[in-house]
Amino acid sequence: MELIERYLQAVQFWLPKAQKHDIIAELSEDLRAQIEEKETNLGRALTETEVGAILLERGRPVLVANRFLPQQHLIGPVLFPIYTFVLKIVMASYLVPSALVWIGRMIYSPAYRGELLSHPVPAILSAWSSVWATAFLAFGAVTIVFAILERLQAKSRFMEKWDPRKLPAVRNPNVVPRATASFEMVVNAVGFIVWATNMYAPVAMISDVRISVSPLWPWFFWGFLLVSLVNCGLSADSLTRPYWTMQRAIVRLLSDAAGSALFCWLLKANILTGLAVANVSPERAAEITNIINYWMGRTFPIAVAIGIVVAAGNIYRIVRLKTAGARPRLEAIAH
């Protein structure tokens, strides 16, 4: 039967050289025995369609051959979760900065923005083609490294050697480490003292530079002083109660929001009104003042973005505290 020969030849193609004749001889014998039995039952020879149906039932040649092959994988189940984790980190640490650079160009480069708006498809393709090329390269490099690790793991079983005592301590994001609280306390206290003692006057002398600021300055002075004072209080509270409470998380959200709003306003307020520098003409000093104000204004979107990220972090903390009571903590489970 030619159909059987063709089927066996197709299976044989995928089999390892050393075993192919043996396996094919056995499969051939099994097939012929099955056909012979059917023919005896029917009292006639099977038609090609009936033989085809038997072969169809046995499965596609490559799948039949595959069952005789040893299980193969590039990265096995032991390393696969670590592989996907590393891949996510590598991709995030590459794609996120690339996206930020692209957004930055959109905001700060009128020429680029103009090009993008007039020819959006070619501009987007040219911007992202190099990004994707590098992303694929990174993906390939990580995959090759893990494929090599997989081979080493298969030989040395290094993943099976581990020490439970070296596992990281149980993480509780609602705990404020004393070191962090102390550091924040010192930074806020020093900031408060420096701000309170040096920044009140609307005219300041730094070395031989005389800096004048806008009449709006008292708003910023008292505003930042208040934020700094609140942060000092929060850090002190964290030292005595080293865990986040709902009340403190809300105060922190308000304090950070106020600080961000003040800072964004400061950037847009044309805060510098004059500079007087020895050996620099008043025209040049005015020019420098305008440049500083201009660039402070240009950084406004970045400050807004940072403010939003900080606020999102604070809101996440509040939500986490709100839901923490509903779930059992790991420490409680361990005890």
Partner: peptide, 25 residues
């Protein structure tokens, strides 16, 4: 192989040839 497959099926443990032969090997 073939008679083994038939005898297993008769005892209620049907096994297709794609599983049986690799298992025997």
């Amino acid at each position: 192989g073939y008679t083994l497959r038939k005898s297993l099926a008769e005892h209620g443990l049907a096994i297709d040839e794609g599983t049986l032969y690799p298992l025997l090997r």
